[in-house]
Design a protein around this nucleic acid. Sequence first.
RNA 1: GCCGGGAUGGCGGAAUGGCAGACGCAUCGGACUUAAAAUCCGAUGUCCUGCAAGGGACGUGCCGGUUCAAGUCCGGCUCCCGGCACCA
Length: 818
Amino acid sequence: MQQYKPEKFESKWQKTWQDKAVFSVDALDKTKDKYYCLVMFPYPSSELHVGHARNYVIGDVVARYKTMRGFYVLSPIGWDAFGLPAENQAIKHKIHPKEWTLNNIKRITAQLKSWGIGYDWDREVTSCKPDYYKWTQWIFLKLHQKGLAYKKMASVNYCPSCKTVLANEQVIDGDCERCDSEVEDREMEQWFFNITGYADRLLGDLEELTEWPDRVKTMQKNWIGKSYGVEIYFPIIGEDRKLSCFTTRVDTIFGASYVVLAPEHQFIQDWIDKGRLGKDIVDFVFRIRKTVRKSKDVGNMEKEGIFTGKYALNPMTGEKIPVFCANYVLMDYGSGAVMAVPAHDGRDFEFAKKYNLPIRLVIDNPKEPIEIEKMAAAYEDEGILVNSGDFCGLSSEQAKTKIAEYMERNNIGKRQVQYKLRDWLISRQRYWGAPIPIIYCQKCGTVEVPESDLPVLLPDNVEFKPTGESPLKLCPEFVNTVCPKCGGEAKREVDTMDTFVDSSWYFLRYLTPDDDKKAFDTGLVNRWLPVDQYIGGIEHATMHLIYARFINKVLYDLGLLNFKEPFKRLFTQGMIVKDGAKMSKSKGNVVAPDRLIEKYGVDTMRLYILFIGPPEKDAEWSDRGVEGAYRFLNRFWRLSCSVDGYCPGTIDKSREKNLTRTLNLTIKKITEDMEGGFKFNTAISFIMELLNTIQSDIADTCISKDLLDEIIKKLIVLISPFAPHIADELYLRMGQKTPILSAQSWPGYSEESLIQDEIELPVQINGRLKSKVKVFSGADEQTIKNIVLSNSDVIDKLKGSAVKKIIVVQNRIINIVV
RNA sequence: GCCGGGAUGGCGGAAUGGCAGACGCAUCGGACUUAAAAUCCGAUGUCCUGCAAGGGACGUGCCGGUUCAAGUCCGGCUCCCGGCACCA
C-alpha cells in the first residue's frame, strides 16, 4: 500500500485545475446559474500568514462547493495595493513603493497558488496600476459632477518635527511614532464625499440585507446613528444672535444650566476676532484646538473647560446661564455646541462636579425617587419630569413631544433628525494613492481633469523627504499643467485618494478587468451582481462595507447599475490568534503557512484551519492540532487505498444498514453545515466520525466491497472542498477519470434511509438523567408514558415516589416530575 | 468612554430551551515490534464512595431570575477581543 505523500501530487493537481480552467469563467456564458463568490482583496504586505489563509481557504471552499452544486462560479482575486505601509518602506528602506508592492504581489500570488485556492487569474486587478486607478479617478469625477465631492476645512494630525501629516496609527498617545514629538491638530482644506446625503438610504436598505450577520447590521446602524431630537436656540445675552444646540433629550431642557462650545466654534472665533475674550480664555482655546481630540478619546480624557464670560438664556426657564468652552465638545457632531444638563448626562455631570456648577434634577426615577444630594452619577434613563414648569408629571416620552411642539410654536427650537455619520474625508497628503483628478486654474478656478485625459498618472520620480506637504507637491512635472478650459497655467491637486475609494468598487471591475473604454460593463455587472457571497474580516463591518454600499448607490443613481446593494450575503470570519494575541511581526507570533505546507502538505493546513473552530469566531492556533489533521488525512488515504484489496467475510446486514444510514445522515448534516452558517469545523468532524465507523466495519470484514467502494467515493467528494488535492488524487486512483470539480456533483441523500425502527430516549426524574428506554419510533405520547412507567429500571429509580407529571418531548427526552 | 462580539475539561472546540463535553489535541494503559517511530484498541470533567460491578454530589466567567428542564432565555456585573472615521 502506498503512503500518503502530498508533495508527490499537490502541485500536479494545481496545474491540472489551471490547465483544465476549472476556475475560469466566461462572463457571457448563461447556460448555468451564476454564483459570484468574493473574498476581500488583500493588502499586499510582505507575506500572508495563517490568518489570511483562513479568509481565502473559506472562499475556496465556498467556490468549490457551489461549483459542485451546479453553479457557474466566479471567484476572482486582486490587490488593494495603494496605502501607507508601502510609503513607510520607501522612507525606511529606500525602496520605491511601487517596487515593494509589486514584489509582494508576486510572492503572495505564488503563496495563494500553492494553497490550491482556485481563482480566475485572468481577472486579477491591482488598484495601484494606472489601468485600474484611471477608473477610480473616473468615479471621483462622477461624484464631483453630481455635487457629491466637495472641499472643506478639516483637521489632520501634524507632526511639527517631521513636518508631515500622520495617520492615526502613527500617533502613539498623542506623540509622533517616529520622533516622539507632540502631534498637533492642523486645519487644511480637503476633499469630502457627501455620504451623509445617503445616510437614510444606507440605513433603510439594511432591511434588505437579510443574509448579512445581525451584528454587522447593528454596527452599521449605530455607526450611521440616526437620532431624532430638537435644535434649541439659546439667545446670547448682549448679542443679536442665538446659539443652536442639538439634543435628543429635550425633556431635560429645564435642567440645562450652562452651555458648552467646542473651541473651534464660530462664536468663539468671532469673540476672539473682536477681542472680547480675555487672554487666559484665548490661550485655552488655542491650546485645546492644537491638541488632537478623537471621538474615542473624549470618554477617557480629563474634561477641561473655561468660562467665556458670556451668558445665554435658557429659552424655557428664562434663566441666565454661563457659556463655557470645553475640550469634550467636538465640532464633528451636531453644531459643535451642547446644552449641559449635569443631572442627566454623564459627561456634564463630571464637568459640573469639577467646576462646581449647579446640578438640577429634572427627571425622576419612577421606581426609586432620586435624592439630588446623594447622586453619585448622572441619571441618564428616562423618567418623570420634575422642576419643569407646566411639563411636570409627564413621562420623558410625552414631554419630548410636548416640549418640542411648544418650542416650535414659540420659535425656540425645531425638531431635527441628526446622524452620527460624517462625510467621508477622502484627501490624503500622501504619495502612494490615486491622484485626485482636479486642476486649479487662476482664471477658471477648480476644474475637472477631462475624462479623456485620465488617468492622471502618479509620477515615479518623487522625493520622500518629509516636508509637510504631499510628496507630489515637490514634483514640478506633476504639479504644473495647463487648464483644460482656458489653456492657461494651472496647478494639479496634489492630494491622493483614501484607499477605501479604491476598494469601494473593485468587485465591479472583475467582470471586465482589461476594458480600457469604461470602468465596468453595466450589462455584465447587472447580470453577475450583487455578489452572492462576500467573505472578509469583521474589522471591516463599518467603514469598508459602508463605503462600498455608498458608491454602489451613487452608481445606481447614475443608472450605471440596476442593484441597490452590492453584497447579497456576507460572511465575516474571526481572527486566528497565537498566544492570545493577534498575529503581527512586531509580536513575533506569526505562523507562516508555508513552513507547515513543507512538512505536511497544503491539504493538512487547509483542513486544520477549517477544523480549528467556527469560522466566524476567533481561534487560537496550536501547532499540535495540525498533527491531528495530518493524521486524519493519512488515515483517509490508507482506508481509500485499502478498498482494492478488501475481502469481505460474513456480511452483517444490520451493520450494512446502519452504515448506509450513517452515510446518508453524514451527507445531510454536512450539506446543512455548508448551506447554513459555514460550519466547516463540524462538517469535517462528521467525516471523521464516518471514517471511524468504516474503519471498524472494515476490520470486522462485515460489509460488502460494493458498499465500501460507494461510501469511500462519496466521502472523497464530501472532503474535496476542504482538501481538494488528496480528493482528486484518490478519486483518480479509484478509477475516476475527471477531476471532481469538472465532473462530480455534490452527493444527495435519501430521507427514507434515515428512518430508524427503534430509538433510545433519555429519562429524567426531576430534571436529572436517571435512565434510558427504547421505544418504537413514531410511538405516541401515551404509549411512551406507558413504556416508561412500566420499565423496571425506571420503577426502581422512582423508589415509589408519587408521579406528578410526565413531560414527553417527541424524539428527545422524557422528564418525570415527582 | 461609545458601538459590536466572546467566555464551556489540561488545550481547540460540540450541543433546534431537552443526555454538557461530539470531533480533534494532549495524557495514561494495552497490542504490534528485538527496540523505537508509525499504526491499531481502550481510558480520560472534578470530587466523594465502593474490593468490584456500580452509586452519589458538583460542574459551561460571576450574582440573581423564568422554566418540568438553562451553556442556551431575562436582569445585573467581571474580564478579554474587534471597531471608533488617516492601518487596511
